[in-house]
Design a protein around this nucleic acid. Structure first.
Lengths: 186, 186
DNA sequence: GGCGTCTATATAGGGCCGATATATGAGAAT
DNA sequence: ATTCTCATATATCGGCCCTATATAGACGCC
């Protein structure tokens, strides 16, 4: 599924500029399970306009570049519907963290601990973010949000309960990197 | 993190051909959380050879193209280690299913049910696949496998318990698509 | 015998990300 | 008062990467 189709989906929620569509992928309703950036969104909107799937009206602004407001046409809405009736790609998951974990036995324990701590913090933040319901959300957004919350919660639990599995296979830190003044503790 | 780095990681498990590295991404230990294909792997191996991070010995085969067997050099191993000590990219998750779910209210109920059924079947298959331990797996692979199992299990549970949320907002199927002979039930 | 699958390398085409350029206003920091 | 950062807004370039395809023999299945 290409960025053009994703843009059609974005415009179902109302007319928008390329800038606003980009925000939907960065912060908005798409941010947790889709990706697209300026480099693909602007060309996509041009293509869609050429094909008559969206309309573009330029709004003049003082001392600013014109704002181009895009809106779905009937053909655009139909094109999205067709895309949603053809087989969808499987979910894709990419994790450099799990890649690194495969080589935990080559890393110092402190680095593995750091990686787990970072991942755990990131996942907790996402879990919390997805815990609060926004009244403006559609039922579909609610479902996606709850889905994400369930998955990230499971992720956090797993990491907390099993981090020792990889931390214990990491190599010991070099002595000189650890504090030496243990004897002063007495 | 580029494909070159991923190839270095693949070669930690032993020397391999480009073909075998590709299999690691398709079926093997990387398949659940990384992506790479011929179009990037072969050029990556060429680049790595040029930079002295891997060696390449060609093994002549009768009536076949030469098999090129790649192996890590010390510098290659060090380069991987450096990459694992620089900040890692966040996990990325891409789901056309969740995209479609956002527009459940535009789709016939039968299509939404179909989408959920397909997704559920795919996730159950993955859950089962990750449930069995392979004796050849490293501790890191075990961790990644259990992690995936936990996440997919949570995913299956959520879908089973909450599918009604989106199925109920889908539009009714057109009457002519549904069986008409309800009255014969008596 | 024919068909599909597996082994094995390689490339062309096109899509996409990341970074950058261009302007300017608002608000915060110092 | 001045500087700095952030937000608005469009657009493109370079380079990386995926998809599909080409090539070619072996092997098993029907």
């Amino acid at each position: 599924m290409q960025v053009t189709t994703l843009c059609l989906g974005a415009l179902v929620f109302g007319e928008a500029t390329g800038y606003e569509i980009n925000k939907m992928f960065e912060d908005g309703p798409f941010s947790h399970f889709l990706d697209a950036s300026y480099g693909s969104i602007y060309p996509a909107l041009t293509r869609l306009t050429d094909e008559g799937l969206v309309t573009c009206k330029a709004e003049q602004q003082e001392r600013r570049p014109d704002k181009k407001i895009y809106a779905l046409t009937d053909r655009g809405r139909q094109s999205l519907s067709e895309a949603l009736h053809t087989p969808l790609a499987e979910d894709k998951f990419r994790s450099e963290f799990l890649f690194a974990v495969l080589f935990a036995d080559l890393l110092p324990r402190s680095r593995v601990v750091e990686l787990v701590d970072q991942r755990l913090a990131a996942m907790k933040a996402k879990t919390e973010e997805l815990a609060t319901k926004d009244p403006g959300d559609t039922p579909g957004m609610d479902f996606a949000r709850l889905y994400g919350h369930a998955v990230y919660s499971a992720s956090v639990s797993f990491l907390e309960n099993n981090r020792h599995l990889i931390e214990d296979i990491a190599v010991d830190d070099k002595p000189q990197e650890a504090p030496r003044e243990v004897h002063t503790h007495v």
